[in-house]
């Protein structure tokens, strides 16, 4: 079996987001790029499955739609243990475009399992995996918290409100993973870093495809205001503010 893990290249989650003067773009100066944390969990699980000889995963590949600034991130994926990286050479315009490009690649180069993270800590939200499954016309399992392979069967746990479902299915399918799929993202070992030098990082041309949306402008949240005091007999107001202003209830 072959597994493909979709990797998005995102600013380090501790990065302070800054905008260019016209607010049209994120200011990338000094930004450290990392593998989107959920994708890193997916990759770690894929490699664990491959290392476990009781199942028959022969290859773990990673794919990214992006320009060459993604290469360092892809090489890190190789250092962590992926066998091959594919970069589809195009600006990732929107989730539809990204998913469409990956789908075009997978149609030519089939995989049994395609994994993506439930969220991308930049723009694309949780959309790429779901779109991909529609492009590929195959099932997608969202909120996946456990993934095991038993012979030709795939056993999956999926988080649902108030509990979990245990599912069984046969490949091919798209899995959208969340926390829990593995304990910790894997740290690349020296040997892996060294071997990454020799592993293939294939750059393929993008296919013709229109995006459906684009970002016109960014805005930063307002600076944290000082504490808003609410009288003890106006607690309805507090609940209202938590819901509609802070949006945390």
């Amino acid at each position: 079996m072959k597994i493909l893990v979709c990797i998005s290249n995102v600013p380090d989650t501790t990065t302070k987001v800054k905008l260019t003067d016209d607010n049209k773009q994120i200011d990338n100066a000094g930004v450290q790029w990392i593998i989107n944390p959920w994708d890193e969990l997916a990759l770690t699980r894929a490699i664990e499955l491959k290392e476990d000889s009781s199942n028959t995963i022969d290859e773990v590949c990673v794919v990214n739609v992006g320009l060459n600034q993604s290469d360092a991130t892809l090489r890190k994926a190789l250092a962590i243990g992926a066998d091959k990286a594919i970069r589809i050479d195009a600006e990732p315009l929107d989730a539809y475009f990204v998913a469409g490009q990956i789908a075009a690649y997978v149609k030519e180069n089939p995989f049994d399992i395609v994994l993506s993270g439930i969220e991308s800590s930049d723009y694309n939200g949780s959309s790429v995996g779901g779109m991909l499954s529609e492009f590929m016309d195959c099932p997608a399992i969202s909120s996946m918290t456990k993934l095991d392979v038993e012979n030709e069967n795939i056993i999956i746990h999926r988080a649902i409100p108030g509990g979990k479902q245990i599912l069984e299915l046969k490949p091919p399918f798209i899995g959208i993973v969340q926390k829990g799929i593995t304990n910790e993202p894997r740290i690349p070992a020296m040997r892996g870093i060294m071997m990454a030098r020799k592993k293939p990082l294939e750059v393929v041309a993008a296919v013709e495809l229109d995006s459906l949306s684009h970002i016109v402008e960014f805005e930063l949240p307002k600076a944290k205001a000082s504490c808003q005091m609410i009288a003890a007999d106006q607690l309805e107001e507090l609940v209202h503010l938590l819901k509609s202003e802070a949006k945390v209830l």
Partner: peptide
């Protein structure tokens, strides 16, 4: 059609234009 959404886990907002 332009609409506001959250990006970078809430550290910024983006105005997205849907072209379709």
């Amino acid at each position: 059609f332009i609409i506001k959404k959250r990006v970078f886990s809430g550290k910024a907002f983006a105005y997205v234009q849907i072209d379709s």
